[in-house]
Amino acid sequence: SFGHSSKWFTIIYGGLMAGLVEETTRYLVFKVLAKKRSLMTSDIVAYGFGHGLSEFIFLGVMGLLTNIIVLQAIHSGQASQLPSLLVSQVNQLTGLAVLMSLFERLVALVLQVLLTAWDFLAVTKQKLSFYFWAIILHAAIDFLAGAYQLGIVSNLLLIELILAIYVLGIGLLTRRIWRKEGTHGLI
């Protein structure tokens, strides 16, 4: 049906655009930085953790704070002043869902560092293929998130398990490529 195919289009388009924007930004930052000084492996950690931690704070912590504020409003009888969808989402929250959300943010933080390493290699080894692979690897994980958000896959635990295995696989692949390219330090 059209509705189902448009969901897939949304997932694929959203994943590719997120990968393109984030990886292009990283790649360009390294290109500009490389003109000013020699790039160091510590730049990967600085940029990757900076990006990942900002996402962790904005998405993880801000989401948690919003949930706490809504819970306070519910318990003090002021829930009628809030959007009903928000109230029902917070009412359905479980401790497991909150833990899974924090786990997902931590795994995403690791992924940000790993993808930053790919963009670093694209610049330092002058191989644009690493940049393109970073986009694809980024988009693939966003496809998974999109499938969950659009209800195509509904098991949160399964999604988080796949996410963890995927990031572990990216970590092993990154380490292998890192060594093959003769780059030392970090991984």
Rank of each mutant, 00 (worst) to 15 (best):
A145D: 04
Q149F: 05
A108K: 05
Q78Y: 14
Q126W: 02
R105W: 03
G50I: 10
T183L: 08
L102S: 07
L16W: 07
I159N: 01
T24V: 13
G185S: 06
R179P: 00
L106M: 12
I12D: 05
L93M: 12
N67L: 03
L156Q: 05
L96F: 15
A79T: 06
L109P: 01
L106K: 04
R179F: 10
Q89P: 11
L82A: 07
R37K: 12
E23A: 08
S6M: 15
S5G: 08
G151N: 02
T174Y: 00
S80K: 14
N155A: 10
I162Q: 01
W133P: 05
L156Y: 12
T116V: 06
Q81L: 14
L121Q: 11
I136R: 06
I152W: 00
M62G: 05
L65I: 15
L16A: 09
S80Y: 13
K35F: 07
G151H: 02
V61T: 11
H75V: 14
I159M: 04
F132A: 09
V87N: 03
L114S: 03
A122R: 01
E22K: 02
L59G: 12
G52C: 07
E23H: 06
L65F: 14
M17F: 14
H184Q: 13
K125L: 08
T124A: 11
Y47D: 04
L128V: 14
F132G: 04
S80N: 13
H184A: 11
T116I: 05
L53A: 06
T10Q: 15
T94V: 09
Q112C: 14
R176Y: 08
T25K: 10
K7M: 09
L53K: 06
W178T: 00
L71W: 09
L157M: 14
A147G: 06
G63I: 03
E104P: 01
F2P: 12
I136Y: 08
V70A: 00
G169T: 05
T94D: 06
L144G: 01
A134N: 00
N67G: 10
S38T: 03
W118Q: 01
L99Y: 08
L64W: 07
F58Y: 11
I12P: 05
L99R: 11
R105M: 00
L28T: 13
I68E: 13
G19D: 05
Q89L: 11
S42F: 08
G52M: 05
T10G: 11
T183P: 01
V21K: 12
Q89K: 15
I177G: 00
S80T: 14
R176M: 10
L172N: 07
G60C: 10
L156G: 02
F58N: 12
I57L: 15
V21M: 15
E160Q: 13
R175C: 05
S101G: 11
W178Y: 07
G48Q: 07
A145I: 09
V29N: 04
M62P: 02
L144E: 04
T41E: 11
Q78W: 13
G171F: 01
I12R: 07
P83E: 09
K31T: 14
V123T: 04
Q112L: 10
L65Y: 12
M100N: 12
L85A: 15
V113D: 03
G48T: 07
L99P: 02
G169M: 04
S80H: 10
I165R: 09
L156D: 03
N155Y: 04
Y47T: 07
